[in-house]
Nucleic acid binder design. Sequence first.
DNA 1: GGAATCGGCTAAATCGTTTTAGCATGCTAG
DNA 2: CTAGCATGCTAAAACGATTTAGCCGATTCC
Lengths: 338, 338
Amino acid sequence: MAAHLGLSPTTVSLVMNRSPAARGIPPETQDRVRAAAEELGYRPNFIARSLRRQRTFAVGVLLPEISEGYAAGVLAGIEDELLQEGYFYLVAGHHSKPDLFDDYLQLLTERSVEGLILVNTPIDEPLPLPAVVVAGHRELTGVTNVAIDHQVAARLALAHLAELGHRRIAFFKGHAHSADTEARWQAIVAASRELGLEIDSRLTLQLSGGPAGEQFSPEEGYREGHVFGRRLIETGARFTALFAFNDISAIGAMRALSEAGLRIPDEVAVVGFDDILSAAFQNPSLTTVRQPLHEMGRRAAAELLRKLAAPDKDSPPAITIEPTLVVRDSTGPAPDRA
Amino acid sequence: MAAHLGLSPTTVSLVMNRSPAARGIPPETQDRVRAAAEELGYRPNFIARSLRRQRTFAVGVLLPEISEGYAAGVLAGIEDELLQEGYFYLVAGHHSKPDLFDDYLQLLTERSVEGLILVNTPIDEPLPLPAVVVAGHRELTGVTNVAIDHQVAARLALAHLAELGHRRIAFFKGHAHSADTEARWQAIVAASRELGLEIDSRLTLQLSGGPAGEQFSPEEGYREGHVFGRRLIETGARFTALFAFNDISAIGAMRALSEAGLRIPDEVAVVGFDDILSAAFQNPSLTTVRQPLHEMGRRAAAELLRKLAAPDKDSPPAITIEPTLVVRDSTGPAPDRA
DNA sequence: GGAATCGGCTAAATCGTTTTAGCATGCTAG
DNA sequence: CTAGCATGCTAAAACGATTTAGCCGATTCC
């Protein structure tokens, strides 16, 4: 390129980067360089540039499983934001195996990513690079945690049910090793108090989510929802609505309730959480709290880029995002009111 | 590192890479180097290495949408294979916008990826790098196409139905701009002939899949399945089974059939295609042909690595992978036989 | 005793950029 | 007339590794 023009690499570089130092190069020469670049299809080598500038315009993403709905949704948002800003990303799925966390962290740093985004990945030690966490389990100093606003989520679901006249509501709590379980439950307790609803501990079941460390597959989660749906009936305690921890268990429970002869939503209303694809395809279709995964990803990526641009400015410990309620056919007026 | 040991970078490099030229370096020195590397946490800089060796150990993946089930499933397979072999990958989702194909192809080549994998991405021009295509639309010379074996898929589904006594089978054909539509339909025609089944053109409906170029969202696909289910009944032609083009339309059709008072599987059997997550959660759960997405991804990645390792050896134009039949509750004996 | 070999290393070029410092040349000002 | 300055460019170092060619001293061989 430089040779072809009879100019030095310096000049070419200056022009191509529209560097302020190119002030001293007359417009004609600049045009000549750009024309030649166009003609030869010249594109500066990113690797060489990265080496010299010590910037890769790449970030690393660590998540449990790339094909799983939650992570994939968030990743799509991350991608949108990053590509727009000229960044790329390297992903590694660790299949929830803690040994792999470190291995992949190593590999990513070795490749000189500039920052990290962890999705649903519990980690204890401080991270070697600027990082943002989505659905993080613990708080790490200097690391921003992106999560939905559980207060709002609980209030949306419960206010919807209360408005329909439901007073006796059953709950599926999340499994112990989920990041959201505790926060969500506290929000539910608070919202119930606000709305004057009582929580019956007999109607509060905790999902196991599989043996600690491992994760239930979706089909197993569905099955657990089914079992728990039956168990609710067996308690003998009266309830007119169920707020499940996620759509999968809600769908399993709906099946169990129908099998027991309970009509949905006439006799029992069901609210799920997440708004997975199949929520809309159920019969009846499932009312649920939607997590704006895409936006969570976007915000996480945007915050990371902000950190990279201004490492000194300290960053918020948390970014909370508003969920929305998707009302479908699994909820209706409480039977005693209808 | 070199300075710390009082040795030259050459020696360090030779030892760290276990280069054959390290023959001349005595084991003690080698140990000394490795010990120091361990102690200092020294990891060679990948960028510098890439620049010198002209190898990045990275490949580019182009797909429509990272959060969509098909692509995400394939990508998980790609990832498994690549990470295992020390490669990383850069992904870009083009949202089915042809203008973005070239842009991202540019960006990826600029970043010196060594090869490309295209998933569900129709492209005409020859590619600038070694490439493998999953679910490719056209044949490109030198590019291997990974796809399922449609013959087997059609035979699995139809033999299952025939065995249950079904003779009058309705079909949903794929939309015109899907890579699989034509191949699958031909396979269905062939398998029908083999099994002595007649195809009634009144019972063969073609999905539109949305206005050309754009893609239907899953919810729209579901709705189309619902409409088409009703339309099947309206034809007045007798049928005891439906083989849909995908699970989503099958689920929509099941809904329509139930609403019309037809019991599944007693009066109509339904077979889907893909085995998406919700197939197992339907009521009744959906019998379907499962595409081994993960394996398709793995094979695609493996073939690409093979190409990179031996660019001269010519590669197969296609790799076909066997689907499997997942029998659930939406299929049963034909009514006239039961 | 001199040449050849061997053992243990290293100098220097290279990959393709960016960046700092500065070199000619011509013009202007004092 | 010359110091100073603007103009238009370039030399060379640097980024952090890999790789080729080869140096130097000691031993072996004839």
